[in-house]
Write a protein that binds this DNA or RNA. Structure first.
Lengths: 188, 188
DNA sequence: AGGGCCATGTAATAGGTTACATGATTGC
DNA sequence: GCAATCATGTAACCTATTACATGGCCCT
């Protein structure tokens, strides 16, 4: 279970409310860990009960008040313990791979449209990551573009590079899949 | 939920027992979908109840008897329906990415050993996939190495190529991560 | 005698998804 | 007036993981 730890990391990077965390899980952190607001509120409540995080009620005008969470000493210790604990590389789950093998018992050509849709989603994700990279890391207006090396920044960048590499690899593979499906469609 | 469908595909490729399916999920099918025997037995029972699969008791000598499952007409129809249903590309979950961003608040150098361990596991997976590719698809003794194009075979191969591409990409990224961590370790 | 493989399962717990629920403000 | 955004939550259900449980055969 790493949702706890993903939330702790996000709150260390910047304290925020459950709602704000949910938004981050749709963007940056969400590139490599997903969570819905329901999950987040549940985990926040549990971590607050365990003394891992502190809450501060923040009144706002023109908006509902919010609870701003920040990481407490116990939470930092729990994160540190987890960081030093070995974890096994997870196996992937690809619906699409199941569908491709299943297509052998159905109509392979019918899968082409589905694969094209996948291709488009991954193309959009890649464009989004690349835009984020320019904005936050490599572009001229990027924060601390020239300055002392910042560990947090470097680490965020290397994670983003992983996302970019993943999307590029996926796009190339989807092209391979499409070529294979088209070949099978015309072979007979 | 695609475990049902992954099992149906596997049983279409070759009927087998729950135990055999569990072994397949450690290998071939398991490259892109994981499941433990407990999950598999539960789903088999449910699919049998729904008439998606048929069972045949197979007595064996020197071994416990087994139940051999095969896909029934209703199961084939359910698979076909799922194949024609659009699915969203799933988001990834990478513990390691959480750890890398978390390392900014701990000791980045302490992560090096963990990343090296990951690197080794992925290197072994790649070697395993490549050996399987030679054995089953590209090697001289591969079945149907020369012959008419076989859709099932081609589709299994393109899925395997996806696994190979994934492992290669991951290894390259882990090298990038290691270089970044080492740079941060020596920078101060 | 002990470990590993074959073979099937139950039970408890944790984690994730979906649907429902409320209510104010801002902009079109 | 309607939709979107901000903000928080409950409840039901489904899925997945972990631990426990059994028992025979084969090999060293």
């Amino acid at each position: 279970m790493a949702l706890d730890h993903a939330i702790l990391v996000s709150l260390l990077e910047r304290p925020g409310s459950g709602y704000e965390l949910a938004r981050r899980f749709e963007r940056s952190i969400g590139y490599f860990w997903t969570a819905t607001h329901q999950q987040i509120y549940r985990v926040l409540k549990r971590m607050e009960g365990d003394g891992w995080i502190d809450v501060r009620e923040v009144p706002q005008q023109g908006r509902p008040d919010k609870k701003e969470y920040s990481v407490a000493a116990a939470g930092r210790a729990a994160l540190s313990a987890w960081l030093h604990e070995p974890i096994e590389p997870e196996s992937v789950r690809h619906d699409l791979a199941v569908k491709i093998r299943g297509a052998a018992f159905d109509d392979p050509a019918a899968l082409i449209r589905e694969v094209e849709r996948y291709r488009q989603v991954h193309g959009e994700r890649l464009a989004h990551y690349l835009a984020g990279e320019v904005r936050d890391f490599t572009g001229p207006g990027a924060p601390h573009a020239s300055g002392p090396p910042d560990a947090g920044r470097e680490l965020q960048h290397v994670v983003l590079r992983g996302g970019i590499a993943y999307e590029r690899m996926t796009l190339a593979w989807l092209d391979d899949v499409l070529a294979t499906l088209r070949r099978l469609g015309t072979a007979r």
